[in-house]
Design a protein around this nucleic acid. Structure first.
Lengths: 148, 148
DNA sequence: ACCAATAATGAGAATCATTTCCAAAAGTCC
DNA sequence: GGACTTTTGGAAATGATTCTCATTATTGGT
């Protein structure tokens, strides 16, 4: 479980934090590492399992700060707790497979062709509604491989 | 504010409830009416504003029951509270415009052509991941007309 | 319509993920 | 190194949602 972050990702995060006058402390780096290591967005419990010595209150606080700075995205799928992942600026545009049985969430991507068809259609719908879009979010609900 | 439900919708809901050995009481009908009247998914507060005499605990309890029966869908966009709307079986397939400023949620739809392009692409992604899809969920995030 | 049996209601208490407090520890800058 | 500012961590507070349980409504049989 080497909590490693690629150097360029680490640097990018350092810049974002500095720009917001926030420090890139050891605890925050370990938190980022846990998110980077996980496949798909993680619950608080999963983060704490990966980094058991980080205190809960600090994890919550830092997740909030990292979200404000644009390093972390908080998502609420449907269950009782939130999940956190690195923001798309720092990773790649992707979507989520949400298992309605066990609650687990995995990532997937669509082809660029489908994405742009979608983006065009969404832009059109937004314009009609006088809505200024900044991002979209697409989830597929169903049963994951483990839940058969 | 005539809390009216179209007869066929009302009948359909009655059938779903009876099938689940649940009663279609006055309180539940008023709850359904509030959801039907609202444009877009409503928070508990918005429901209570529309039907101030319904007690909170009953609203919560009935929302849960109606969700289990497949009459209501609970969605959590990102804020601190859940929102509720009539299930798609009873309405029409649609998506949500989520204002990241004021938190309000409005409905919109895509053309059948875009929807089927999307469905095909999603089915393919799901198969690759060994995932059995049952539905998809697509949100557009941004700023609503009111928030300029 | 009336009765017994069963399900739903309502007011408040309990739950639990998340936030907040604040004194102690760490980082920053000169 | 020292003063200053930010972060930390443990524990207490918050607040949306859920549960409890005595009371009330609804149903089906007669």
């Amino acid at each position: 479980m080497p909590t490693d972050i690629p150097t360029d990702l680490d640097d990018e995060i350092a810049v974002l934090l500095r720009r917001a006058e926030q420090r890139y402390t050891t605890g925050r780096r370990r938190l980022v590492a846990a998110l980077h290591n996980g496949e798909g967005p993680l619950t608080l419990g999963q983060i704490m399992a990966a980094e058991p010595t980080l205190p809960q209150s600090s994890v919550y606080r830092n997740l909030t700060i990292l979200e404000e700075v644009g390093i972390v995205t908080r998502i609420v799928t449907n269950g009782d707790f939130a999940r956190y992942e690195l923001a798309e600026n720092l990773t790649e545009h992707h979507h989520h497979l949400i298992c309605t049985n066990c609650g687990d969430v995995a990532d997937f991507s669509l082809s660029g062709r489908v994405e742009s068809t979608l983006d065009r259609a969404l832009a059109e719908s937004a314009r009609t509604a006088g809505f200024t879009p900044t991002a979209h979010r697409l989830d597929l609900l169903g049963t994951c491989a483990d839940c058969g």
